[in-house]
Write a protein that binds this DNA or RNA. Sequence first.
DNA 1: TTTAGAAACAAACGCTTGTTTGTTTAATGC
DNA 2: GCATTAAACAAACAAGCGTTTGTTTCTAAA
Lengths: 212, 212
Amino acid sequence: MARTRGSVGAETEKAIRKAAVELIAKHGFEAMTLRDLAEHVGLQPGSIYRYIATKDQLLVDIMAEHMETLIAAWRAADRPDADPRLRLEGFVDFHIRYHFQRQKEVVIANLELRSLTPDARRACVALRKTYESELRGILEAGIVQGFFTPTDSGIATNAIISMLTGVCFWYSPKGKLSADDIIAIHKRLVLGGLSGTPRGEAKIIPLAAGRN
Amino acid sequence: MARTRGSVGAETEKAIRKAAVELIAKHGFEAMTLRDLAEHVGLQPGSIYRYIATKDQLLVDIMAEHMETLIAAWRAADRPDADPRLRLEGFVDFHIRYHFQRQKEVVIANLELRSLTPDARRACVALRKTYESELRGILEAGIVQGFFTPTDSGIATNAIISMLTGVCFWYSPKGKLSADDIIAIHKRLVLGGLSGTPRGEAKIIPLAAGRN
DNA sequence: TTTAGAAACAAACGCTTGTTTGTTTAATGC
DNA sequence: GCATTAAACAAACAAGCGTTTGTTTCTAAA
């Protein structure tokens, strides 16, 4: 054989991407063979090279595209002028919901940084930092306005991101709890952790208006 | 050459372990070659097989040993009859401090589960669950005794573990904050998140006695 | 001092990997 | 209907992989 009947390049490219995401998330980038990938798409190994420059570049494309759409999606959802507590709830909601939808990409973005070339790694780490600084901005605004207990915003950002991203690794849609349930629990953990006063005296600042 | 002057088996074995932990944590298990490992120890590739049965088994040994000593160390540190809030603070303290000491092993234990054979993976996942259930026990005790806001203890356990383990991935001893600082911040985040009442009414239960 | 065993080397094994090359077939514009 | 291009195949490439084998050198007990 040669060219398959009905084959279209754009569709093949998408199929390769999808299969690659699946295989990398499942077995890891190094463990995924191009022969394995080709078989899942129904191609011969060499044919993949119509659509990718190199195996390394395939990973770079997947990771960079994921990070960029993540940042863009958040910026579209955020309301930078709102109450920091509302923004923070919104961030928790957005992060978990988005990550449920792209669980595999998230796993890849978090586990395969070390499989990238130094240059590509730097670029992806920078994108990650960009996303994290969005959360950090919320925390600092909340601290300045007196809603959150003063703390090191960098550490708190890392801690919260770790917690929220961890969801992707253990969440299963088949569990007894819905996504909404899990989001609600995490909202309470995060907001409580920032405004909490675990040792006695409480400083409660009531929330002004009341959407959400 | 053949046998090196002054070579002792026990020392070589430790050197192999150490180098393996370093290389796996840095590049991933699949990306680490036995040739690379041998070179770091100063051996020929084949000589490694005096000390390991197979490459897969090397990973199993590293992971299982780490999980077992982790569980044992925690059980030695825990005081099961103490106030759940104190136990929880103790857990945060222990977990972060222990994980700082064994940063590389922790990275491996968290990233390389998928590189294990199904049997080995099941065993390691079971060990992980054992450790997590220790934290879960504290949360449930705290909820029953009215110290923590009722919530799904399984989800909360996962969330807290994710947050605390995440430290290993971004912490550097060269940072401006000491381990103690970071631990303090995380204690507040965790305890505040569990006892926090982010929406208005506060329910504060003063802590009884006062060690720690 | 001799000898048994421990610790390493040197060299190769079969296999798999990412990738390249040349060819063949299907779709498409003139 | 024909030429061109797109999309795939088939086959091989060199390099690298985990692993095995047989041998050599050092150590330590007799």
